[in-house]
Write a protein that binds this DNA or RNA. Structure first.
Length: 177
DNA sequence: CCACGGATTGGCT
DNA sequence: GCCAATCCGTGGA
């Protein structure tokens, strides 16, 4: 969830990938702490935002204790509330169901929809700007599928991508073999 | 539906 | 210089 300009932007996380720092050649933290990745080494519960491909931001939830650079990349979100604002942020119009599914179905798309950029790097997820709440459906049993991760060249063997089965809002990116 | 390539910055060798 | 935890438009089946 995000509080943004007098709106609530609400989404359900439907796809993530784990990046395990020093033991994971695909992780930004693989070669230790730098200015870019330093938030990855903070306490769990912070947001690590990075800029990539010269034009996109992607976001991660930092998961370990201080000094250990583990994080979970947020790859797709099912938009629940504030869709009009998200669509404006994404520069698209909501007409068909298809447009709704294209709103947040990628790590850079969800950042654009939720207006997550450089300024949000290091945000405390226990604060009141961006946070993660428990889903209000205690009896639901989501079936979680796993696969290899998307768009990487190293660490391909690990099945560290997790997503909800049959959820139409998962990303279109293809896992590496 | 699928494959391909261009866009465009910054981090690191 | 090389290339990336991506996205989107184009062109063909």
């Amino acid at each position: 969830m995000r509080r943004y300009k007098n709106h609530f932007l609400i989404g359900k996380i439907v796809e993530v990938e784990a990046y395990l720092g020093e033991q994971d050649p695909a992780s930004h933290a693989y070669n230790g702490k730098t200015k870019r990745n330093e938030v990855m080494f903070w306490n769990g519960g912070h947001l690590y935002v990075y800029f990539t491909y010269g034009m996109h931001f992607c976001s991660n939830v930092v998961t370990e204790q201080e000094g250990i650079g583990h994080a979970v990349l947020l790859r797709a979100v099912e938009p629940i509330g504030g869709l009009e604002v998200m669509a404006r942020n994404r520069h698209i119009t909501l007409r068909a169901e298809r447009d709704k599914q294209n709103l947040c179905n990628g790590p850079a798309k969800l950042c654009e929809a939720f207006a997550i950029e450089r300024e949000e790097n290091g945000v405390d997820l226990c604060g009141d700007d961006i946070w993660i709440a428990e889903e209000q459906r205690p009896n639901s049993r989501p079936s979680i599928e796993k696969s290899t991760r998307v768009g990487i060249t190293r660490g391909k063997q690990h099945q560290w991508r997790f997503f909800l089965r049959n959820n139409p809002y998962v990303s279109t990116g293809k896992p590496v073999q």
